[in-house]
Design a protein around this nucleic acid. Sequence first.
DNA 1: CGGTATCCAGTATGATACTG
DNA 2: CAGTATCATACTGGATACCG
Lengths: 112, 112
Amino acid sequence: MVKYKDNEYRCSIELTLKLIGGKWKVLILWYLGEKNMRFGELKRALPQITQKMLTKQLRELEEDGIVNRFVHHQVPPKVEYSLSEMGKSLLPILSTLSEWGTFYAEQAESNY
Amino acid sequence: MVKYKDNEYRCSIELTLKLIGGKWKVLILWYLGEKNMRFGELKRALPQITQKMLTKQLRELEEDGIVNRFVHHQVPPKVEYSLSEMGKSLLPILSTLSEWGTFYAEQAESNY
DNA sequence: CGGTATCCAGTATGATACTG
DNA sequence: CAGTATCATACTGGATACCG
C-alpha cells in the first residue's frame, strides 16, 4: 500500500502508472529527455495536442516533481520545461516499456 | 508509430500502457505471476473489485494474449487463469515499475 | 461458480474562444 | 507566447439484478 497526495494505491506500480499515464505524458517526457523545450516548441512537436491538454499535463508533471518549469520574466513570455532528476530517472524505464511494446506489436502482428 | 487493433499509437510505450493500464490489471498480473488462479480465487484476492470489472479486465488481458483462460467443462464450472508467455515477459517490467514507484513515494514523502 | 445485462456517475479529453 | 475559461463528449469504472 502506497500513499501519495490523499490517494491510496494498492501497489506502487499503480502510483507509477498514475504519474505517467496521462494521454500525452510519455511523449512529453520523451521529448524533454532529449532537450529542454519551451511551451510552443512542445506544442509544435505534438501537433495533435490542444493547448489545454499540454498545459494540464505539464502542470501535473510539474506538481508531481517530474518536470521543472522555468519562467523567464520578459515580453513576450518565455517558459522553459526540463526534466527534474526524478524525471530523468524515468527515462530508462520508458525505454524498457518502449522495447516491450515494440516486441509485443511484432508478435501480435505475426499472429494474424 | 505502432498499430494494434485499429488503434494507432504514437509510440510503443502508449501501447504498453494501454495493455496494462486498466485499473486492476497490474494486480491481476501480479497474482497470476505467483500461481494460476480460478475466477473466484482472484475475486477473493481483490476484495474491492466487482464481478463485472474482474470479468472485463480478464477478458481484455485474454484478448490481448497476456493471460490464458482455461475452462474445465464440469458442474459446477471451473475457470482457470494463467499468464501466457507474453504475460510472463511483463513480470520483470512490473518489478521495475514497482521499484521506481516505491523510490518515488519515499522521495516525495521526505520532501514534506 | 462464473458469469451477463442495464443503468449511471465521475473523470479524462477535446473544441473553441478569449487574454496579460 | 503561453496561457484560461467554458462547454461538450467519450471513456472508465461501479451498483445492482439476473442467468446457465
